[in-house]
C-alpha cells in the first residue's frame, strides 16, 4: 500500500523521456511546456509538441498522477496568438491545470475554459495575501506558486490568509530576483526573458578556454571566469561575478542550489500543499535523482519515520552546494 501524501511532489519534465522518468521515480505531478515561446524554458530541442503532451497526460493519468502545462511567459503586444493557442491546446488534451503568469492570459483562460484549473506561476511574483486574493477572486486561481523570497514563517502567514493551495520551490535555483520582472539579460542579448522564455538564450552564450580557466559570456559580455577545479555556474547575469572596489565577487546570487529536504516538516506545518522541483532544462538523469531523493524523504515522513540523509542531491545542485535560501532568512 502506498504511503499517504505528505506533500505533493511536483517534478519538471523538459522531454517526454524526462516525464516518464519523473512518474516512474515517484512524482505525484509533472509540469511541462509546449515547444515555443509560451513557456519559460524555451531552449532548443526541449519541450513538447501537442501530441507529446497528450501522450504525457495519458501516461500520467494511467498511473494516477497529474500533468500541468506551464504557459508562463508574457504575451507580446503584437501577437497573442501563440499564448491563446497554448491555453486552448492544453484544455483540449485534458491537462490537470495550466500554470499562468500574465493577467490577460489568466482572464482569457478563465473566460474561455471555465472548468480548466488555473495555477498562478511564480513568474507572476505574487508574494502577499492581497495580491494572491486578487488572482483568486478575479480568475478563480486554485493554487499559487510562491516566489522564493519568503521565510517559512511568512509562507505560513500567506497560507493562512489566502484560502487556496500553495506550491513552494523545493530544489533548484535560489531565485532571489523578482521573478517575471527581471530584465537583466535583455540588456546583454536584446531578447526579453519574459516573452521569449529564456534569460540566457543558448544562441548568445559562449564558453572560451583560457589556459586552465573557462570564461563564460552572454551576448559578448563576460559574466564569469572559473579557475581550474572551481565549480561552474549557469551563464545568467544574476550568477555573474562583477568587479567592485577592485574585487570580483557574486553581487546578486552565488552558484548554490536550493534544497529544502531538511525542512520538510516545517513546510508541512506551514500548510504548504506541494513542493516544486525546478529544472525543465535539466536531463532525465537529474529528474530521476532528485524526484527519487524527495520521494524517499516524503514517504518516510508520511510513515512517521526519520527520513534518510539527502546528501546525495548536493552533487546535482548548482555549484555543488546547497542552501535553504530565503526560507531560513533571519534578517526580517
Amino acid at each position: 500500500m502506498s504511503a499517504p501524501v505528505y506533500l505533493e511532489l511536483v517534478s519538471p519534465a523538459g522531454t517526454p523521456a524526462a516525464l516518464v522518468a519523473a512518474i516512474d521515480a515517484g512524482a505525484d505531478t509533472v509540469y511541462c511546456g509546449f515547444r515555443d515561446c509560451t513557456n519559460a524554458r524555451n531552449y532548443p530541442g526541449l519541450n513538447f509538441d501537442v501530441d507529446e503532451m497528450a501522450e504525457g497526460v495519458a501516461y500520467a493519468h494511467a498511473r494516477g498522477r497529474k500533468l500541468l502545462a506551464a504557459i508562463n511567459t508574457f504575451p507580446r503586444a503584437d501577437d497573442m496568438a501563440p499564448w491563446h493557442k497554448a491555453v486552448d491546446n492544453a484544455a483540449a488534451i485534458g491537462v490537470d491545470a495550466v500554470i499562468l503568469a500574465d493577467i490577460g492570459l489568466l482572464d482569457y483562460a478563465h473566460r474561455r475554459h471555465p472548468s480548466l484549473r488555473l495555477h498562478l506561476s511564480v513568474q507572476a511574483a505574487a508574494s502577499n495575501p492581497m495580491s494572491i486574493a486578487f488572482y483568486r477572486e478575479n480568475f478563480g486561481v486554485r493554487r499559487v506558486v510562491l516566489p522564493r523570497v519568503l521565510s517559512v514563517d511568512e509562507v505560513a502567514d500567506v497560507v493562512k490568509a489566502i484560502g487556496i493551495e500553495t506550491e513552494v520551490f523545493a530544489f533548484g535555483s535560489v531565485g532571489s530576483m523578482s521573478e517575471g520582472r527581471c530584465f537583466l539579460s535583455s540588456y546583454m542579448t536584446g531578447l526579453s526573458p519574459t516573452s521569449e522564455g529564456v534569460c540566457a538564450p543558448a544562441s548568445h552564450v559562449t564558453y572560451v578556454e583560457d589556459g586552465d580557466k573557462i570564461v563564460s559570456c552572454l551576448g559578448g559580455v563576460t559574466l564569469n571566469c572559473f579557475a581550474k577545479g572551481e565549480p561552474a555556474a549557469y551563464p545568467t547575469p544574476c550568477k555573474g561575478r562583477y568587479v567592485t572596489e577592485g574585487r570580483a565577487s557574486y553581487l546578486f546570487e552565488e552558484p548554490i542550489g536550493l534544497n529544502v529536504a531538511n525542512i520538510l516538516p516545517q513546510l508541512k506545518a506551514a500548510g504548504v500543499t506541494a513542493l516544486k522541483i525546478e529544472g525543465r532544462q535539466r536531463s532525465r538523469a537529474y529528474v530521476t535523482q532528485v524526484v527519487s531523493g524527495f520521494r524517499k524523504q516524503l514517504d518516510a515522513l508520511a510513515r512517521g519515520e526519520t527520513p534518510p540523509p539527502a546528501d546525495d542531491l548536493k552533487l546535482v545542485a548548482e555549484g555543488g552546494r546547497e542552501t535553504f535560501g530565503a526560507y531560513g532568512k533571519g534578517w526580517r
Binding site: A202, S203, Y207, G229, A285, Y286, G320
Partner: peptide, 17 residues
C-alpha cells in the same frame, strides 16, 4: 546529468552553445 558534469567541470564545451 549534463549540467552536473558541467558544474563539476568534468564536461567542457566551447563554440556555439
Amino acid at each position: 546529468d549534463g549540467d552536473t558534469l558541467f558544474f563539476s567541470r568534468d564536461l567542457l564545451i566551447s563554440g556555439d552553445t
